[in-house]
Each structure stands twice: as C-alpha cells, then as structure tokens.
Computed example of a mutant assay.
Amino acid sequence: MDVWHETDGLKRPGIFLVHGGWWSGGDKKYMTEITRSYAEQGYTVFNINYRLSGDAAWPAQRTDTLDAIATARRHAALWGFDPNNYVVVGFSAGGHLAAAVGTYGDGLPGLRGVVGISPVTSPMLAYEDGADTLDLSRRKLREAAIQLAGGCEPAKCPKIWASMEVSRHASRGDAPMLALHSEDEFVPAAHSLQLKERLRPFGVPVTVLTEPGAEHSSPMYRLPGVAETVQDWIAGKLL
C-alpha cells in the first residue's frame, strides 16, 4: 500500500482506498488522484492493493484488505494515524471488499464507516443478472464473480458464494455504509438495497443514493457533486 501522511506528530483520521477492476485487474496507481484529494483534506490515506482473482481465489482479497488495515493500525504512530478513527472507501469490485470489511465479524475496531462507489455487494446477484442478457458488462461481471470463486459456480460451491455475499455476514456491530450507484449502470442499486434490508434489523444504517445516467465507479464519482457528497458523509462519521 501507499501511505500518504504528515510528519508533524499529529494523529489524523484515516481513509483506506480500495481500487476496482472486476477483482481480476486494476491497481492502486489508478487511485492516485483520489488519494491526493483526501490527503489534501488532512487525512492519513492508505491506497491499497490486494491479490487479484487470477492469482488467488476468495477470500484472499478480503484477507489482504483486512491485513492492510491491521498493518496500518499496528504502525499508526509511524504514519500519524488515529487507529480508532477511519473509514474504508471502495470502487466497484473494491466496493465489494470495502463492504465485506464493514460486515466482517461483529465489526472492526475503529472502523467508523464504509463507502461503496458502484459496489458489487452481491456476487450472486451479479451472477444471476449476467445470465441470458445482451449486456456485455453484466455478462463480464458474472464471469468475474465465477473467477473470484475459484472458477466454481454457486451450485457446486455454495459455501464459497455464501462467504462472498456481504449481506450474509450482517450483524449488530457492522459499520454504517454509504452506497452510490448510477440509475442505469450494470451494477444496480439492488446490490446495496439488499444489504440495507439485511442490516436494518441490526440497527446499522445504510444510505443508498442514485445518480442519473449509466456512469460506473470512478467516472460516476467524478460527476458534479458526487465526491462532495461522499466527503461530507465521511466527515460526519470521523471523530
């Protein structure tokens, strides 16, 4: 991971950024501009990589994201980071990992919130939506979810697919979440609305917002007002 931090001895809230790319591609270098924007706002920013699905199947990606957070908390003093005051922001497949961190166990110490930009919180829904469709992006996402599961489809590997489903891990200690989707993109808001319903009985708030159009992930984040909405939500969660 790349760590953007100050050396003035102060402890700052942290932001972990998780890139997208169908779980099989992408790299933290594509998040540099967004990383800089949060560093300029005074946060300690951790821009992370994780094992891609072509190298390791689930849950390696979640494991790596959790390990990045644990490493940052362990060396908090080195990077001017308040280990009890951070959020995780993920884009597309990275939004799935961010949400998976937010529902891991009964909550992570210090995690104040999760933001998903076009988050694929339900690989099973992606699998179902990608069947019998002419939408090439939905078909690609279906294949990407199968690859994440080690090439195994749900009927043969139900435990793996259950583990990949963020909503299956809902519990009372989970982190509040903000999810943003475009109205006509290939990762519909249904992903996040499903998670919202699963977290509702536990009193964990999930805010789902939609934007007009079909922009996905980073292009949607760059639409007028979207980044500001995310930044305001984050500021309201950090101490």
Rank of each mutant, 00 (worst) to 15 (best):
A100P: 01
F91H: 11
A68Y: 07
V87L: 10
H75M: 09
P109W: 05
R62S: 06
P119K: 11
F91P: 01
H75Y: 12
T121K: 02
Y86N: 10
Y86S: 12
R112T: 01
G102I: 14
A77T: 14
D55R: 14
A99M: 09
P83R: 09
Y104D: 15
A70L: 01
W58A: 12
V89I: 15
I117Q: 04
R62L: 13
G94S: 08
Y86E: 10
T65E: 07
G94C: 07
H75V: 04
T63W: 05
W58L: 05
G110N: 04
T65Y: 04
T65Q: 11
G107K: 00
L108M: 13
A93L: 01
A98G: 04
I69G: 03
R112F: 01
V115S: 06
D67M: 15
I117M: 14
Q61D: 01
A76M: 12
A56K: 12
T63L: 08
V87P: 11
V115R: 03
A70E: 06
G80V: 05
L66R: 11
G102K: 13
G107R: 01
G116A: 08
A72I: 12
Q61A: 02
I117V: 15
A100H: 01
T71F: 14
F81T: 12
A77F: 03
A99Q: 07
R112D: 00
G90Y: 01
W58R: 04
L66N: 14
A70N: 04
A56I: 02
A72S: 14
V115E: 08
A93V: 00
I117K: 00
G110P: 07
A60F: 00
D106N: 15
P83S: 10
R112N: 02
R73T: 05
P119I: 12
G80T: 04
N85D: 14
G116T: 09
A57F: 06
S118K: 05
V89A: 05
W79M: 11
T71C: 07
V87R: 06
A56Q: 07
P83I: 11
I117E: 03
A57D: 12
G54E: 14
V114F: 07
G105L: 05
I117H: 01
A68F: 09
D64Q: 09
L66T: 13
I117S: 02
L108N: 08
H75G: 01
A98F: 02
V88T: 13
G113M: 00
A98E: 03
